[in-house]
Design a binder for these strands. Structure first.
Ligand SMILES: [Mn+2]
Ligand SMILES: [Mn+2]
Ligand SMILES: [Mn+2]
Ligand SMILES: [Mn+2]
Lengths: 220, 220
DNA sequence: ACAAATTTTTAGACTTGTCTAAATTTTTCT
DNA sequence: AGAAAAATTTAGACAAGTCTAAAAATTTGT
């Protein structure tokens, strides 16, 4: 069965929300992520359910079925491979590629995406450190954790970001954070949950909790 | 003003039809090319006209305005650059790329297409010999003519094809015709307008008028 | 010139996906 | 438990783009 752009976007969003929430996803969460009204989401969830791509009980939230998960993973795979292509081959910066990839992820050609994967050298992660599902939908487990979940006195390496929006990535860049940066978490300031971090041994800077919970690190 | 996929497809088709017909394009011609009903075309022409992209008088056919032509050329540019990319970088055959390019031509990013152009080395023609408009919409005039318009005893080189459909290209390949083939037009058979052609000096073969009028050649 | 054939347009319906406003269900709070 | 608040669904409308059937305009043929 073929999928419309709208359906693909819903499945992808439900998948992304499920990554950080093992339970049912609520209508409102989807609405906020997809930038639409809850009424529209209710309607679409009913349709996705009829197609067998989600399990959905009125008022009880939604979950992907195996079929739905498979579709979602193929969209995520395309999105991340195209982002890698845009940065590595087209020379874009990491904060410029998400919106273009939002369009490219809907191009329908299994053969193209596999050839692209090969052309790019089968990359494991996209320019934001997010894992790229392989042809069979298997995602390499990278074992990263959120900077906001680390304890004081932790040393870690910045491995990725949990958001690709231009505003967020430009702020991260302004803070002089990049993939591979060595971070030393000095302390967590209880007042606002901001954290003091030394980047590459420099004098510590403040990073808001909002930012920290979108930074993926590997503890050394 | 932004353009929908449907609008872009209409503008592109009107442009393509105008290439071989300097007069107004009829509703039915558009309908046949775009695989839709004449009623739908009428409706869309009215809308395109309101947006200032075509000149359209009821019952009198349609023409692109300068604005419309500019949009059409940008779609054609994207289509042909992506086709080149698919053949040269992804390793597809020339008969496999048209349908994928039909999707890719709607990706909206001026910056991407210019970077792609550069990445590909500013190609002048696509894999089917069709000229690629440059950034400013200027098309190199290649001075090709249709094989069906040649006189007997002409020697020429196959420079392109006037159609990208898979069925057509596979037939052309089966006939052992490729870009660059040296052709010697022996005679035109008046009964069915088929032509006898020697390819690369081989024993002559028959080529139907239908095929010949989709083959672009340069006379030597 | 004028009837017949052909082309084109209009009218009305349908699908997808969205919205607002109102109704319903669930959750929270006393 | 029961009221109030919050979340969710339903109802009805709308826009884009398509379709069929019918009407209107144009072209063709004698
Ligand atoms: Mn992204
Ligand atoms: Mn990404
Ligand atoms: Mn093509
Ligand atoms: Mn082509």
């Amino acid at each position: 069965m073929s999928t419309s752009f709208a359906e693909e976007n819903y499945l992808k969003i439900i998948y992304r929300l499920s990554e950080s929430n093992p339970n049912e996803i609520s209508t409102n969460e989807v609405a906020e992520m997809i930038q639409t009204k809850a009424a529209s989401v209710s309607d679409m969830l009913r349709k996705l359910s009829e197609k067998g791509w989600v399990n959905y009980q009125k008022y009880q939230g939604v979950r992907l079925t195996d079929k739905g998960q498979k579709i979602a993973l193929s969209i995520v795979r395309k999105h991340r491979l195209w982002e890698f292509f845009l940065v590595e081959k087209m020379g874009f910066n990491w904060d410029q590629v998400h919106d273009i990839a939002e369009q490219l992820e809907h191009i329908e050609s299994e053969e193209l995406i596999n050839k692209l994967d090969e052309f790019l050298g089968f990359p494991k992660v996209d320019p934001h450190g997010d894992p790229i599902p392989n042809k069979d939908g298997v995602i390499p487990d990278l074992g990263y954790q959120l900077l906001s979940d680390c304890k004081p006195n932790t040393t870690c390496t910045l491995m990725g970001v949990a958001q690709d929006s231009t505003v967020f990535l430009q702020l991260v860049t302004k803070l002089d954070l990049k993939l591979g940066s060595k971070l030393n978490l000095i302390e967590i300031n209880s007042f606002d949950r901001s954290i003091s971090v030394s980047i590459e041994g420099q004098t510590p800077v403040f990073i808001s909790h909002e930012v920290a919970k979108n930074i993926l690190v590997k503890i050394i």
